[in-house]
Design a protein around this nucleic acid. Structure first.
Length: 515
RNA sequence: GGCCCCAUCGUAUAGCCUGGUCUAGUACACUGGCUUUUCAAGCCAAGAACACCGGUUCAAAUCCGGUUGGGGCCA
């Protein structure tokens, strides 16, 4: 289980190679992150390069819009690459669809050296053989029916346009390699069978294309998900057949569903855009993802991307898969939201408020918006939450059940009295100031003043009604509900200040009418 | 089914390489408390794990073997 730390004479070059067949997957983002961090701070020191390659060999399912999407999401996360798909063309092009000539060249080389051959077996034949092997308790493996076809038969089949694929002769031997995370790993390639590497000379398949691309792009370290671990031996064999160097491998633990299976769409959001759109902050997502499978060995667990660039090291990466626990992501996201500069946070919340039709340009001042967000932010797990949390600040009319106004065992009349006490003429009932007596023009409409007046009123109210003196809920709860229309909200002092005197009094009156 | 990988509180992990300082640390979550008009946030506290069996050793979470369990790949 030794992990070698070989000195590299080559430049460190890592890559991420997504297939643009759907929205960018969260697993792709995490793999990208680890590759990026590794390149930024390679074991031997110096600076490496991180490359973005687009694996769009599947022409039917690959769409430009998904390539654009992956780019957008990686940029959003702050993961930057040095080459590809449209920048820095030293080893380009960086899209597999544009590299057909390169693949063809190597495919031909394999053919001339008799390391690859045409296979004319049909899907059906293959499937039957597979079933038969499995029923006998054997590993399903290509039986080699076409390995030694005569030149005439091949020619005949080809001219007849019989469907064919290209297979690679997999040597019957043990393959050993050293994985940066897992140590020594050994496979018996004899169990593999000859693998299909291309549909034809124009259409290479995954195993072949990665091997060629990684070599041509001088990738030094292949850091990828554990699902590729068992693909590694056949790729190594291909490299050997082609005369390539084998890169250094590091297989990352998988991100798992709650039931420990590989993270999948069925059990929650897997697209980076899902998290982006719901208002997770990139810093939270980065921090969360990196801690899934890595930690510095200290008790520190809040990391910015730039700190990570200095502190990350592969040796500290776990071997076991990690469950993607949204609750923890929520905590981290809430933490970063609370930490955020209020102006920036307001900017980030705006789109959500606009989308919900709450924020109409020019209607609410920047200053007020910031106050609204300031009093709501401790309750936010994600940016989208701001909508539910603050809608009552923006609405003209509130609608809620009048019973919500009652604190403890209050009757309608009690509630009414409490609310009346906050109004300008409520003063009649007491010799203290009421809310309505505060004059905004004299700078009296502040949380501080409002709080003073209301606390006095609460004491007075309790005295009158013979309520337990310490419990201010008899006044404050009805007031808070009158102002927010909600069971849970910021304090009535904060709400009143933001709402302004006029609107505050209006809402109190509206509530009284309900009773 | 074959092959490969993995295994510390519910979750993420520290500790494992270099056995003793581990009556196993931290964070999230959960529970209780403080604060409090409410919900949050904050603070305090409590509960909670070395998968199992054997071996090596004076001593094992740590080293070795096996078992079990989980996962991945192969179509």
């Amino acid at each position: 289980m030794k992990k070698e730390t070989k000195k590299l004479d080559r430049e460190v070059r890592t890559r991420i190679a997504p297939s643009p067949t759907g929205p960018a997957h969260i697993g792709t983002a995490r793999t990208a992150l680890f590759n990026y961090l590794f390149a930024k701070n390679p074991p031997g020191g110096g600076k490496g390069k991180f490359i973005l390659r687009i694996e769009d060999t599947d022409k039917e399912r690959s769409l430009q819009k998904w390539t654009d999407e992956v780019i957008e999401q990686l940029k959003w996360l702050g993961i930057e690459w040095d080459e590809g798909p449209d920048i820095g063309g030293t080893f380009g092009p960086y899209k597999q669809s544009q590299r057909a000539e390169i693949y063809k060249k190597y495919l031909e080389k394999l053919f001339t050296e008799d390391k690859a051959y045409y296979c004319f077996c049909t899907e059906e034949e293959l499937e039957n053989k597979r079933q038969e092997q499995m029923s006998r308790g054997l590993a399903p493996k290509y039986d080699g029916a076409c390995t030694r076809l005569s030149a005439e038969i091949i020619k005949k089949n080809l001219t007849e346009k019989k469907p064919s694929v290209i297979r690679f002769r997999v040597e019957n031997k043990k393959i050993k390699f050293n994985d940066l995370i897992r140590g020594d790993v050994e496979f018996d390639a004899g169990l593999l069978g000859d693998v299909v590497i291309a549909k034809n000379f124009e259409n290479p398949l995954y195993h072949f294309a990665v091997v060629v691309d990684d070599f041509e792009m001088k990738i030094s370290h292949v850091i990828r998900g554990e699902e590729h671990l068992s693909n590694t031996p056949r790729q190594i064999l291909l490299q050997k057949a082609l005369g390539f160097n084998t890169p250094i491998y590091a297989h990352l633990p998988l991100m798992l569903n709650m039931d420990k299976s590989k993270m999948s769409k069925r059990q929650g959001d897997v697209a980076v855009s899902d998290y982006h759109n719901n208002g997770y902050l990139p810093e939270a997502l980065i921090n969360f993802m990196v801690l899934l499978g890595w930690n510095p060995g200290t008790e520190k667990e809040i990391f910015s991307l730039s700190q990570l660039k200095k502190e990350f090291s592969v040796e500290k990466v776990q071997k076991a898969g990690a469950i993607f626990n949204v609750t923890r992501l929520d905590f981290l996201n809430g933490f970063y939201i609370r930490e955020k500069d209020i102006k920036k946070l307001a900017e980030l919340c705006k789109p959500y408020l606009k989308e919900a039709g709450l924020l109409i340009t020019g209607q609410v001042s920047e200053n007020t918006l910031e106050k609204i967000i300031e009093v709501s932010k401790t309750r936010m797990k994600k940016l989208l939450d701001i909508v539910e949390l603050s809608d009552f600040f923006f609405k003209e009319n509130l609608s809620f059940d009048k019973n919500l106004l009652k604190w403890s065992k209050m009757e309608d009349t009690d509630v009414k009295e409490a609310l009346l006490l906050c109004l300008p003429d409520g003063r009649q009932a007491t010799n203290k100031k009421s809310l309505g007596d505060l004059n905004p023009k004299k700078g009296e409409w502040t949380v501080q003043k409002i709080k003073e007046v209301l606390e006095d009123a609460a004491v007075e109210f309790n005295k009158q009604k013979n309520y337990p003196g310490k419990n201010r809920g008899f006044l404050l709860w009805p007031l808070r509900v009158a102002l927010s229309g909600k069971q849970f909200s910021p304090s009535p002092f904060e709400i009143a200040e933001i709402l302004g005197r006029e609107k505050t009094l209006e809402r109190i009156n509206e509530a009284i009418k309900l009773l």
